[in-house]
Structures are given as C-alpha cells and as structure tokens.
C-alpha cells in the first residue's frame, strides 16, 4: 500500500506542465490528481470517496464513461466530471 504524499502546503505549484484532464487519460494509465473543478457537492463527494488532490487513481476502463480504481474501490464517473479533474499521468 502506497502512502500518499500530501501537497497540502503549496497550492501554487499544483499545475505542472505535463498535467492533463483525467478524461483524456487512457485505460491502464495511473495518474495523480492535481485539481478538482466541478460542482461543490460533487467535489465534496469525490473527496470523501478518496479522490482527493494528491491521490493516485488507476484508469480501469475508458469507454462511454470512466471506470477508476480509487483506493481499491471502483468508481464510475461521467465525462462531465472527469473533464473537470486535472491529473498528472505517471505511466501509460
């Protein structure tokens, strides 16, 4: 189990150059969440589900919507949500 490194302190360097939208990632990729931009209640729900800034997600499937592995649980998110999430893909 990986202990998640927490970027609580510095919000300013959260958008590195290689970041992209979660919706643009491919199946099998792993990515680190940088920023959540969606409705407040959706963001609140996503964070409670473990999809918090700094956490790692695995893209299990990417067809008509996105299926993610977040801390061992499977989450299905619509594109409206995944397009508002900025991530840094770590490997393809």
């Amino acid at each position: 189990m990986t202990v998640i490194a927490l970027p609580i302190a510095e919000q300013t360097d959260r958008r590195p150059v290689q970041s992209c939208r979660l919706g643009d990632c491919a199946s099998g990729q792993t990515a680190t969440v940088v920023e959540l931009r969606c409705g407040e209640s959706e963001a609140c729900r996503l964070r409670a589900l473990g999809l918090v800034e700094g956490s790692t997600v695995n893209i299990v499937d990417q067809r008509h919507c996105m299926l993610l592995d977040v801390r061992g649980a499977r989450l299905a998110l619509s594109h409206a949500i995944t397009n508002g999430i900025t991530v840094v893909p770590s490997r393809g």
Partner: peptide, 22 residues
C-alpha cells in the same frame, strides 16, 4: 495560507488514513 479550504479536511484525513493503512 496556500492551502485549499475545500480539500484540506479530506487531505488531512487521507494523510492520516495513509499512516493507519501502512
């Protein structure tokens, strides 16, 4: 202060959870 007020609670909790799980 440089922290995200919307995510600070979740970040703190999951940081703590990370240590518990480890």
């Amino acid at each position: 202060t440089g922290a995200n007020p919307r995510s600070i609670e979740a970040e703190l909790r999951y940081a703590w959870i990370g240590t518990v799980v480890a």
